[in-house]
Design a protein around this nucleic acid. Sequence first.
RNA 1: GCCCUCGUGGUGAAAUUGGUAGACACAAAGGACUUAAAAUCCUUGCCCUUUUGGGAGUGCCAGUUCGAGUCUGGCCGAGGGCACCA
Length: 841
Amino acid sequence: MERLNFQAIEKKWQSTFEKEKLYNSKSSKKFYCLEMFPYPSGKIHMGHVRNYTIGDVIARFKFMNGFNVLHPMGWDAFGLPAENAAKENKLHPKKWTEKNISEMKRQLKLMGLSIDWDLEVSTCDEKYYKHQQEIFIDFYNKGFVKRKENYVNWDPVEQSVLANEQVVNGRGWRSGAVVERKKLSQWFFDITKFSEDLLKGLEELNNWPEKVKTMQRNWIGKSVGCEIKFNIEVENKKINIFTTRPDTIFGASFLAISVDHPICSKFVNDQKYIEFKEKCLKVGTTEEALANAEKIGFNTNLFATHPFIKDKKLPIYVANFILMDYGTGAIFGCPAHDQRDLDFAKKYDLEITEVVSDEPSKPKNFNNLTEAFVGDGTIINSDFLNGLTVEQAKSKIIREIEKQKIGEKKITYRLKDWGISRQRYWGCPIPMIHLKDGSIVPVDKSELPVKLPDDIDLNKSGNPLETHKNWKNTIHKKTGKPAVRETDTLDTFVDSSWYFLRFCSPETVSEPFDIKKVNYWMPVDQYIGGIEHAILHLLYSRFFMRALKKSNNKINDLEPFKGLFTQGMVCHETYKDKNGKWLTPSEVEKGDNGKYQKISDKSEVRVGPSESMSKSKKNVIDPESMIKSYGADSVRWFILSDSPPEKDIQWSNQGVNAAYKFLQKVYNLCCVVKERSEKKNTLDKEFDLKMNSYINKITRSINDFNLNVVVANVYEIYNLFNDYLSKDTSNKSIKKNFTNFIKILIPFTPHLAYECLELLGVKETKSWPKIDTKLILKEKIKIAIQINGKTREVIEVEKGINQSSVEKLCKNNAKLKNKIMDKSITRVIFVQDRIINFITR
RNA sequence: GCCCUCGUGGUGAAAUUGGUAGACACAAAGGACUUAAAAUCCUUGCCCUUUUGGGAGUGCCAGUUCGAGUCUGGCCGAGGGCACCA
């Protein structure tokens, strides 16, 4: 038995992997395999290991199947942690980021990935963000960029804007000061222009998980309804409302408008209104607080006239549950058929009229009911709509509204514009300048990139760009007049919305990308990453493709990611000591009594549930130390074993150890095969059938992402070879089939596989084993023999055997003879290659 | 509250899509080898039966079917997404 020195062979093969890329330049088929690029936080974690192992399997598999494969990697390098680290360690964000990138790159290389590092891209590199600024200006010129006022979390002590995750219990995480809501003028991408297109585009994404598409659909939130203009009595003004239930118009008993509605400007000096508005703002901004908030209203004492009921007046309220940025910021209330309206009507003693009923003969009294009726039914109490269904009534009333020119059919989306301004240093500067006359214009493209200044002081409060006078003050090129730079930087989601395009031609200087190369490689055939990006990152990237096409017009595709796979998380048990402090797995051991204890003082350890690995709970396993003890292949093999890639996986040291032992055994078996004679013989023929069937199965499983099933099949194949080789002591070889077995391992455990192939003297290592479709037909299969649906026997037969032959076999079978003969068979069900079922009832 | 997904041994899971349930692996128990341990290998894994064999069984209840983990209806449980969206 020979011990394999993983460290030595892995180092050896990794230098080969770096030189040999996955390009089949002669191939007509391309495959763009992309894993979500990492944030350079310092060290790789198990989540990365899982993500990139899955990606590597796909990339290597596709390459072996003749595809020309693009498999790049880069860094999502801008972002807040760099600034925080800079403050803590007195290390410049740039230096900190660069240090992390080189460390993580070194670690990734230990994994033996098939990445083409020549394509490496880093978003904080001015060579990258220069083009991002160009794209921004293109979008600006096309009208996809706009400026709006928006609320931000303002920390009055730090004099800076806080991200949502920096607000803890309503206070700044660092200063502890109560966070204020402040209105700032900010930059937005007009993603809402593409709402319908983004929704429609989902239909063609057949290789996306249904779950992700549903999430995006909900996020876009399309609703079909109509707008109706109500006249305000006396005032000679109109209120435009949006509703999805125009069929309930005859049940309307009030109008409600948002506190931010223009009509409210009338009341700015009204003390009661001021108090009401304050009360509205006091309600917390958390989702929970909003959901549980009491419905309150302010009576304007104004009345609107009902468009279809003569002389009916509807009181107009300002209500806290009406949002200005959805629909028109105004509704009509129909208490019988909307829960919020019912709550509101009861509180303010408003009329409740039933207009839809599932039992028209039994009128309901909603004053005594707590739940509104929102189901389908027949329209009642509604003049010309009476007797119709909800759907019929909707079309009829919309036709009527349009005929009378008091409104129209309208589609609304929940999707909001994408706020891209960040009041931060470590991000891509927004290439705009503010002129003295108040106008804002793009920087001349010849002056790009607008570089981030290096000489900044992050310990001063406020945005370093804001306080950097030299950087901030500039000259407008066209007019030569002094101007001030925009000090906001771009949301890092902008960086990641086009990096996959840059990967196609990272060397291009004059343009963001070489359109020819983009149109060759795009779309990404397989994108792999975490479910946490199911909505924003993917939606923004889809928006970018569309906006780019409109501003550049040369891109072929609208959808950036043809296939999407979202892998599950890596979990581990959590440990706490007797004082409730979190412990890392390395601080814990199993004591003699089988219970966990702290290594340092043997004190008791409380074992918590297995959760996604996170620094805060300390349940992390360091990939590099695992690679050091077991080798990269063992780590890769274990992380693909057992659990399906889309599900969460439990990390266990026993598991990696088992993987390690298995790979060791594969190598040992390889040494045995090597010693055998190479002459063809009957043994090989037997294995031809079996291996062919396995290759077929495994090929299908990889295409379906059932990688855990592949692992199980590989164990079966190993057991098969091991059985034969240990029983058969003659000098017969099964080298040809064993070589195919090792080739199957290439995408999974590349170092070991190449080492074995070298040992066996195999030169051809670039192709996936061929499947012989003729051999598949010759396979022996097992069919089940059932009597009254219960399996009584299993027999091995030739594939494609017909019914009468099987029946004959059954009648001659010793075990079955009596059972079948005894009874009269009333029916026989035969399913080719599966079962035969004798019915005796 | 609304929407989506999922419930299979002690554990992770598999099941050619309506056709042998539990492949493959982890853990456990027993055994072999060994002075001993490690490593390795073998056996076992619900109930009845000495064995041959038979029975129950995929969260629970019903249904469709020759046949249901898979399809239908209802219930229970877990996880995820959205949430004053008119």
